[in-house]
Simulated scan of single mutants.
Amino acid sequence: MTPSSNDPFEHTAHWPAELLSEAREVVAYYDALASTYDESRFGHTYGTCLDAIERSLLKEWLVGPRILDLACGTGRFLDLASEGVDLSPEMVRHARERWPDKRIHQAPAWQIPVEDGAFDTIFSMHFFMHLRPRTLHLILEECWRLLRPGGLLVFDLPNALRRRRAGPSASHPWHAATTLEDSQLLAHLGSRWRRTGQRGIALAPIHRVPPPLRKALVPAERLLARTPLKHLASYHLVKLEKRA
């Protein structure tokens, strides 16, 4: 475990003003949610089904003993990782209580205190969707640094078409606001990454199905995630390989 100050902005004099402002708002939002996050998001049938779908896809793609959960929150997926990192002090506190033997960093995702090439796989769920393009670029660069040659980066993004229909959050415009068309994603990757996989998440409207029937949809979701229909899903899970 890596000890840290309770103030995530203690050493931020060199951060760009826009990045600092964005980070402060996001951290405040998740600090306030930390104590109820697991129960409010995953303590019901829809959350249980979503967790099962995401977990099965991650297990299929994660490789190697050295795995980082990027923006690990309260540690929902830390059983699949060797280490975690999050900037929210409250999220990190809950994660450390939940996983006392795990190494969990309190640090920004674009400046993680770990040596180059430390990981075989990095995964991040429900995080990249909140990032502005500049921040996303910084974090992709940091992930590239942290992965060994041929290492994998796995993350999810909302479906651009479906997200446009929903519109931005009135209270938190950054929340799930980042979507990338296929051409935009490839532009971000440049020559440093190779996309090796893509899956759909939440193709069926599970939240609209009566709770007693929701679990029955999970096997169908797992199958549909691999078909051409995946492009219609609410979210896409992307797998990238680091080029040497």
Rank of each mutant, 00 (worst) to 15 (best):
Y46L: 14
V238P: 05
S183C: 09
W174N: 08
Q198T: 10
V26F: 04
H126P: 01
R145G: 08
L213N: 02
A52Y: 00
Y37A: 05
R134F: 07
I122T: 02
V114R: 02
S56D: 14
P89H: 10
P89T: 11
R145T: 09
G200M: 06
G167D: 10
V218F: 08
W99E: 03
I67V: 15
L140Y: 14
A107Y: 05
D182N: 06
T196D: 09
A71Q: 06
L157T: 12
R192Y: 03
E241Y: 08
M1Q: 12
S171I: 07
A160D: 03
P16S: 09
T12N: 15
A177E: 12
A220T: 06
L87A: 05
R194K: 15
V238R: 00
W15T: 07
T196R: 06
P212A: 09
T48V: 08
R134H: 13
G75Q: 06
P89Y: 05
D31R: 01
L68K: 11
D38N: 10
I67G: 01
R162E: 03
I201M: 12
S169H: 13
A204Y: 07
S21P: 00
A17G: 02
P133Q: 07
S124P: 00
D86Q: 00
A81C: 09
S191C: 04
A81E: 07
V154E: 04
S82T: 15
F128V: 11
G197P: 12
R145P: 07
T135N: 08
P89K: 10
T178R: 08
P108W: 01
L33K: 08
T36K: 02
D86N: 01
A13E: 15
Q106F: 00
D38P: 09
H14D: 15
H105P: 00
D182Y: 03
L50E: 06
I122N: 01
